[in-house]
Write a protein that binds this DNA or RNA. Structure first.
Lengths: 203, 203, 203, 203
DNA sequence: AATGAATGAGCTTTCATTCAT
DNA sequence: AATGAATGAAAGCTCATTCAT
């Protein structure tokens, strides 16, 4: 009964397993050396495979890396959407955005590279597209939250960029911090997003 | 005898001339292709020299690039210090920091790469050190400005990082904008720094 | 009982079936890409088998190709011998040699590669041997035809080579021609073989 | 005085020296292994250079090989044109064509590969063009020689192909023969071209 | 018997670095 | 001081061959 209508064949499962193993390895190597210094040899090594095997699953290096970035962004967007829907309070939603991004980035170095906004990376067309979608979704949340409120009339897209800039800034330094420090960092970013350095209510 | 206490010999002058020509060329090439894709061949070409000559002035590619970044940071810090000293009004000082960073980055692509905070770049020890000095100087300005004021009790260092994160964010997208748009961008960053998205006093 | 004295067991039949299927596929691929560019992958694909299966029937790529060429030569020799025995008129026999070679080559690209006399191919020892046998048989026909006639005292072996050179020359260009054009081509080669460019009797 | 108006600078001479050294090496390697099995590594080795150096003189492997073939054909055509102009007697001209081709092919293995008419080689566009020019020049010589004579009305282009087919045939076997044997071979081809195997005037 | 995933040697090409001139 | 030809290590990628299933 458990195997009624298997949506994937065994082969597909194996294939997916390998594919994501390679993507994970690539992500790890990106963490080690930055995406520009990634070599197929090293990815294979980390994945516990041989160079040639990578080419059974990916057409070439470029498409492998593209998939790493795509995967990271899609996961981020999915998690973010889900997290923001758990509340209707604007500030909580922003908090969800920040927390989700930070959590994902902690595990997923490819994401940091994207958020770093290296033009030579971002201009890979598909990454461009996926990043855009993510930015749109963040923008929309901000637009909804600020509409008809006391918040200053603000360009939602630009605010989204500011928000992500703050997240990215925190990531640059704070990656190796503890969990409680990370929460602190999130609070700080959210608060800063709402009030800047001026004395807001929760000072 | 005519050159009493020559602070530089003729040879040194020539050496400096060549050195900074090469650094300028490298900076230009970084703007073209990003620092990871820079080749010695291209730097030599832009500098109007031959590949071999670069090695008379720099030990190797790594140290050449290190010097480019070092140079960019030192210039930025000098200009920033100078600009902040022209006023004692806190907000003006912050504005000076932002404006200076943006102006330099417009001319100096190496700076953008630094502000992008690529770890593989930043962890070059000397760049690390110079960046630290710059951050300190910004922090100090913020600390001075917030001390004993209505601003919330804030970690100056962290605020400095937030500020630079915003600058970097603006740079990522806004590089090709006009001068007036750039001023707008500066205003926006400064305002955001002080108030976040909350309805501050000015609009 | 129905299979008294089976000259081949069922297993052998299956084996032969697979073997010649692979050889046919290889021949087809040679036609597509030339024998040097043949890949095991492609042969398997055309044969409707998997790569690994090829190695159940052939030790390796080299021996597979050797067998393709061997097969082509053996077929050619058999057909030629049969065709030349259908007449005793010398010119008709030569015509039979030419026609047979051309017909086979039309279907059998491996043959063209052999006739092209690529040394790296021909020096595969077994191909060498088979080609020699074919040349001998052609030579013998020529020797018989010219013995005690008005034809100039001629080295039969050398003449055989000339004849095949002409055939090969025709094949290089004329492969895509129609059937009547092909007959024309055969006539031309035969005539040229007997008379060169001098005005022979049938102009 | 000897150096008035040097048509080539010293650098150009050096460059030409290297270039033709590499072409010679490539030609030698083609002789060893056939053009399809040529590797840049091996060419460099034979040329006494390192792999990387080849790329200072040739854009890539394809253009290197193209130049080898081009060079061989141009040399052949030049020599042939020159040799055929030394006489007006048709048979002598044909002899010149044959002798020139054989001599060049003896030294120049690339030429044999071309005359072998491997389609994957010949379809390199520039080789195609150069080969065509050579064939045209041979055709023209034949057309001139047969015009208004007792020779049978013949398609000059097709005859040219027959002639070259015979040359190629001789080359396939006879490369390692002595000089006098080579002369014999040339005589034989020329005689065959004129008379086929029929009893012509000379023996 | 048949498969096809996995391997790794080998290929072309690039580029930082050296060194004779 | 300056050159740029030469080097060779290292990269991406292909493909004949093997082997667990």
């Amino acid at each position: 009964m458990s195997t009624v209508q298997p949506s994937k064949t065994k082969d597909e499962v194996v294939r997916d397993f390998r594919t994501s193993g390679i993507l994970d390895a690539a992500n790890e190597v990106i963490a080690e050396q930055g995406w520009k210094d990634v070599s197929m040899e090293r990815i294979a090594q980390v994945a516990g495979l041989s160079k040639g095997t990578l080419y059974l699953y990916f057409k070439n290096k470029e498409s492998l890396l593209q998939r790493v970035f795509e995967h990271a962004l899609v996961e981020l967007e999915t998690s973010t959407t889900q997290a923001t829907q758990e509340t209707t309070v604007f500030e909580s939603r922003v908090r969800a955005i920040v927390a989700t991004a930070m959590e994902h980035a902690t595990k997923n170095h490819a994401l940091i590279e994207i958020l770093r906004a290296d033009p030579t990376l971002i201009h890979l067309a598909p990454v461009q597209r996926d990043l855009d979608r993510y930015l749109n979704s963040v923008s929309k949340t901000i637009a909804q939250g600020t509409r008809g409120t006391a918040f200053r009339r603000i360009n939602a897209r630009r605010s989204a960029r500011h928000l992500l800039a703050l997240v990215r800034g925190s990531l640059s330094d704070g990656l190796r911090e503890s969990r409680s420090q990370q929460r602190q960092e999130i609070d700080d970013v959210v608060h800063f997003f709402f009030h800047g350095i001026s004395a807001g209510d929760n000072s």
